[in-house]
């Protein structure tokens, strides 16, 4: 039997209210400044080192995102690390917060479906993240114009827009995860701790564990080791395992989009490079083809996590 009425009735009202809450919350304020200040530091050092090499690079603006100048990591690396924190901060108490404030049953007694509450909250979170990222993106372009004095070309802007879109989906994965945990755990503190645990595991521990596990699955061949090369099987396994982490997918996609000379993200056979002009930039469409799997992976991760949360929420008891 079909249920009557639209599941989207009330989504707008929920999204607008949650967006207003997100934007005015102290939590958001702190997270935003954390990101802006670290990003500014990274940008400042990038600009400093770029000034000396201005003449040599046709994609100066994009270098702003990717150049790192010790001891600071690049702007993109910082975002890869901090976007999850921001998304978790927005999502970890989405549903259990309503439970604990005892507002959930009152809201659900209004003529809306549960879908509207969940979708509205997710959209509000995603829009909040997109707005913050867009502001950061504008900040980078603006600073590039002011300090480097080189107007960005059309392709550079297009590539940096691709960066923006991928970053929003990367944030979406973490937002969906945080909301899922807020449904599963009745206590906000537990949900936040578990989310942060997963974040630290996937961004800090997993890059170290993945090669170790790969070596167990496909032990390195001593003949390659003698030549000082990595065994291809081990390399492929390492890459596959690393890609479980959305952080790895994001950084791969960023390399592909923001460094136009990137031709491949995985191992490559020598004959595939025949005829290639080393160091020559690829056209935008080719770069997008390279990062398409990573982007789809992030979008799919967002959808899968959201759907799991959706099912869990539909089956949950309303009463406290």
């Amino acid at each position: 039997m079909r249920r009557e009425g639209s599941p989207f009735q009330g989504v707008g009202a929920v999204a607008v209210k949650e967006l207003a809450d997100n934007l005015s919350s102290a939590r958001m304020f702190v997270l935003e400044w954390l990101i802006v200040l670290t990003a500014l530091a990274a940008l400042y050092s990038a600009i400093d080192s770029l000034r000396r090499t201005t003449a040599q690079d046709p994609f100066l603006l994009l270098r702003l995102f990717t150049v790192n100048h010790a001891p600071l990591p690049s702007f993109v690396a910082i975002l890869g690390f901090l976007i999850p924190l921001m998304a978790i901060g927005l999502g970890f108490d989405a549903i259990n917060g309503e439970h604990n404030r005892r507002t959930l049953s009152r809201i659900l007694a209004q003529p809306i479906y549960r879908d509207a509450l969940l979708i509205g909250k997710f959209l509000a979170g995603l829009v909040t993240l997109a707005m913050s990222l867009a502001a950061l993106w504008l900040m980078v372009i603006g600073l590039g114009l002011i300090f480097l004095g080189v107007p960005p070309g059309g392709e550079e802007v297009a590539r940096s827009l691709a960066f923006l879109v991928i970053a929003v989906f990367y944030a979406g994965v973490w937002l969906a995860l945080a909301m899922l945990l807020s449904i599963v755990f009745r206590s906000s503190a537990t949900a936040a701790l578990v989310a942060l645990g997963i974040w630290l595991f996937l961004t800090v521990l997993w890059p170290m564990l993945a090669p170790a596990i790969a070596q167990v699955i496909a032990p390195p061949d001593p003949r390659y080791a003698l030549l000082g090369l990595q065994t291809p099987d081990t390399g492929i396994w390492t890459q596959m395992l690393s890609r479980i982490s959305p952080n790895h997918l994001f950084s791969e996609a960023m390399v592909g989009v923001l460094s136009p000379t990137t031709r491949t993200l995985g191992p490559v056979f020598l004959e595939q490079l025949r005829g290639a002009v080393m160091g020559a930039p690829l056209p935008l469409s080719q770069s997008l083809i390279i990062v398409w799997p990573q982007t789809v992976g992030l979008i799919a991760g967002t959808i899968v996590l959201f759907v799991i949360g959706y099912i869990a929420f539909q089956r949950q008891e309303v009463r406290a």
Partner: peptide, 23 residues
């Protein structure tokens, strides 16, 4: 169970120890 919106449009509910958005 089948037409919840229709019912909830016409029925008001004050839950046990009701909560509001404090801010």
């Amino acid at each position: 169970a089948r037409a919840p919106l229709q019912v909830k449009r016409r029925v008001g509910y004050l839950p046990d120890s009701v909560g509001f958005y404090d801010h």
